[in-house]
Amino acid sequence: MTLLSTVKTKQNDSSGLKRLGMGIMYLILVGVAVFQLYPLLWLFFFSLKGNREIFGQSPFALPEDWLWENYQRVWTVGNMDTYFFNSVFITVTAVVLTLLFASLATFAIMRMKWKFSGIALLFIMVGYMIPIHTALVPLFSMFLRVGLLDNHLSIILVYIAYHLPLTVMILSGFYSQLSREIEEAAIVDGASIHRIFFQITLPMTTPVLSTTMIINMIYNWNEFVFANTFLSSDSLRTLTVGIQSFVGQYLTDWGAIGATLVISIVPVLVAYLFLSNRIVEGVAAGSVKG
């Protein structure tokens, strides 16, 4: 990156050098882009192969026979439609509530004036530090006791609780750059605190809300450990757990796993492209900073 920047600083010297620098930079940018896009293509090919081709042959190779039946098998045998719906439901619910709770908490910590705000932030941050496997058995026992095992609610609650710390940390980084002028003006105008939060601060943070929404969405969508442990009924399982039904005692159906992975990436890809536009649009609302 420093190389790029040095090239760029010399742009002023002469237009020839400048053009060369830009050329090199674009070459690198495009190169990296290919590098980042290739995994999708690779995964797609992977999903159309059988074990014999997946292992021991060049990963670059096109599928010999395009095994579309991998998809068919996944969809019929693998119960994908149910898993798919469950994943969407859990992800959407958890993401929305996480963002709301995190925004409320961050606002109270970063914008409001009280003595123990630092401690409150630390309290939340510590939540990020626990390795999830440590919490597994205690959580399982808790849910067992209150009868929430094998229930989507347990998963949603856990996703919210375990992603709140991360979300609050990211949000608080942004709140610290946010100018207070507008809020102060609103207070002078006699606006209530809730109004300030919902109608002024929240809209100003659209770019970061979109960012955290993307991050939360991806994390929840791909989460495996909790979903695997707390949901046992087939009708409640999520896509990531569904993949496991192709892992056999001795033989694993990798083609089917590839197909499931491709199917499961489509909705996040669409949602991501949509949300990442929101990050740009959000600038207009939040351009009062700096």
Binding site: A105, F123, I130, L157, V158, I160, A161, Y162, L164
Partner: peptide, 17 residues
Amino acid sequence: YLLPATLMIGVLVYIPI
């Protein structure tokens, strides 16, 4: 404002810790 977040973290993260 702090209640939902701290309550959830308190119960679902701190107790297991």
